[in-house]
Amino acid sequence: MKNEFINLTPDNLAAEHLCCIIRSKKLHPGVEAKRQWLVDRLNEGHVFRKLNAKATVFIEYAPLKTAWVPIVGDNYYYIYCLWVLGEYKGKGYGKALMEYCIADAKEKGKSGICMLGSKKQKNWLSNQEFANKYGFEVVDTTDDGYELLALSFDGTTPEFTKNTKIHKIEKKELTVYYSMQCPFIYQKINEIKQYCETNNIPLSLVKVDTLEKAKELPCVFNNWGTFYKGEFVTVNLLDVNAIEKILKK
């Protein structure tokens, strides 16, 4: 199975598909935005390992120090995504990807690996029950049920930043913080803009385009964070139905 996987590198990045949205002959703006985001990230030790096929089978992780999330900790890896979908489920690919990450972390002398979770599984977060099978445990929490999961090799643990637990902002309109880490984000941002413009709904979009901005965010964040009436709502990417439910609150 080892030979079935490939890691993205600066040399092959332009030619390889990015798994979440299978690349066709026509360039997809979300995929290309993600590809551009990866240009600098790969030089920071960011790892994108995927099945060498047109499939959604991949893991994406990075040194926590340079991961665009409001989480801190010495010498950790952070897993952004681990996905195996469709016909590829149940064939051991998820196991192989997780074991690769763990072996890589140990080989590089990391203190452990962490990822974002919640008491109730969120649609846009990797399966935390799967992570629990490898010994990931809750090491930090927020008042609204988000959890930081970690697999520690040396007893040390990462933690959410202090700002993360504020979960409040001054803006009262629908507000979305986002980065281009996920290829679906470009599409979702355009959907939200169009819906809000059509319905005269005040909207504030805050692009998280530096590591510093990501580390200082006032909410948990994997690549997206939504606020309404000054209160944090979700890390889930939004569609029109989700927006309508939020606005009714």
Rank of each mutant, 00 (worst) to 15 (best):
D11K: 11
T161V: 04
M1C: 08
A96L: 07
G117L: 05
E87Q: 13
G230L: 06
N43A: 10
T164S: 06
G45F: 06
I185N: 08
K34W: 06
E231P: 00
A15L: 10
Y78V: 06
E129N: 14
V176P: 01
W124E: 14
N236Q: 09
S152L: 11
L51M: 08
N190D: 09
I192K: 01
A105Q: 02
L13R: 11
Q194V: 00
N163T: 04
K119M: 07
G90D: 04
A53I: 04
R23V: 10
K108Q: 13
D11E: 15
L8I: 05
C101F: 01
C219E: 12
V208L: 03
C20K: 13
D40C: 06
N223S: 12
N190S: 11
T142M: 02
G117K: 10
C19A: 14
D104R: 11
R41Q: 15
T66H: 09
I201D: 01
C19S: 15
K171P: 00
L247V: 01
A53W: 02
N132Y: 07
F136T: 15
F184D: 13
I169D: 07
E137S: 08
M115E: 12
T9P: 00
Y146L: 02
P63M: 08
A15D: 14
R41E: 10
I243S: 02
K65N: 09
L18N: 13
Y134R: 04
K89F: 09
K54Q: 15
A55E: 15
V72N: 05
L42D: 02
Y186S: 13
A103V: 09
V31E: 10
L247D: 01
E87P: 00
K245Q: 14
I166K: 09
I22N: 10
I201F: 01
T161C: 06
F130H: 09
K120A: 06
K25S: 13
K133N: 15
N127F: 05
A150P: 03
E191C: 04
T210V: 03
V31D: 09
D239V: 05
L51D: 02
G86Y: 10
K188Y: 11
F221D: 04
L85H: 14
Q194C: 01
M180N: 15
K168C: 10
V72A: 06
W83G: 06
N75G: 07
K106D: 07
G30P: 01
K54V: 08
S118D: 13
F232Q: 07
D209G: 10
L217I: 07
T66K: 13
P202I: 04
K122V: 06
T210S: 05
M115S: 15
I71C: 03
G145D: 11
K193H: 04
G155P: 00
I243W: 00
T210H: 02
W68I: 01
K162H: 08
G92F: 05
L97D: 12
